[in-house]
Simulated assay, not measured.
Amino acid sequence: MRTMQTAVGVFGGGNYTDGVSAPPLMVEGAEDSGRQPISSLNCPPFLAVEACREKLSVLTSDKRSSITRYRTLFPAIDFSLAKNDEDVLWGPDVIETDESVVARGMNLFDWLWTREEKEIAIVTHCGFLYHTLNTYGKECHPTIVEELRKVFANCELRSMVLVDRSKLGSDTSTYNFAGKIPAGLDMPSDVADKKQAEEASKN
Results as ranks from 00 to 15, higher is better:
F79K: 07
C155Q: 14
K63N: 13
A82T: 03
K150H: 09
T6G: 06
G19W: 11
M26A: 13
L129Q: 04
S40F: 02
Q196C: 00
S80T: 11
N134Q: 10
R64T: 12
I122A: 01
V123N: 12
V101L: 07
E54M: 03
H125C: 06
S66Y: 04
S100G: 08
T68H: 08
V94C: 05
M106D: 00
A192F: 10
F11M: 06
E119W: 07
E99S: 08
N15S: 13
P45D: 12
T172Q: 05
E198A: 12
F46L: 04
R115M: 11
P182H: 13
A22I: 02
P75G: 05
L162R: 03
A48N: 15
M160A: 07
A22S: 13
S33V: 01
Q196A: 02
E31M: 09
R71P: 02
N15E: 14
T72R: 11
T174K: 02
K83I: 06
A48Q: 15
Y70I: 13
Y175F: 10
D93T: 03
M106W: 00
I144W: 13
T17Q: 12
R2E: 14
R35H: 03
M106A: 03
A7G: 11
S201G: 05
A76P: 04
T174E: 00
P92M: 01
T135H: 12
S100R: 03
K118S: 12
W113A: 01
T172F: 00
G12T: 01
E28H: 09
V123M: 07
L81R: 11
L25C: 11
R149F: 01
P188D: 13
G14T: 07
S61T: 14
R69M: 15
G34L: 12
S65L: 13
I67T: 15
G179W: 03
A7P: 12
K195T: 12
E156M: 04
I77D: 07
A48T: 14
K195E: 13
S201F: 02
C155V: 09
P75N: 09
E31F: 06
D87P: 07
T6F: 10
V101C: 06
L148Y: 10
C140Y: 07
R158C: 13
S189R: 10
P24G: 12
D164T: 02
S201K: 11
L41C: 14
E119P: 04
I144M: 15
R2A: 09
S80G: 07
A7K: 10
A30T: 05
D78F: 02
G137P: 01
F74D: 02
E198M: 08
G19N: 12
T114E: 11
I95P: 00
V20H: 08
L133R: 00
R158Q: 12
L157D: 00
W90A: 01
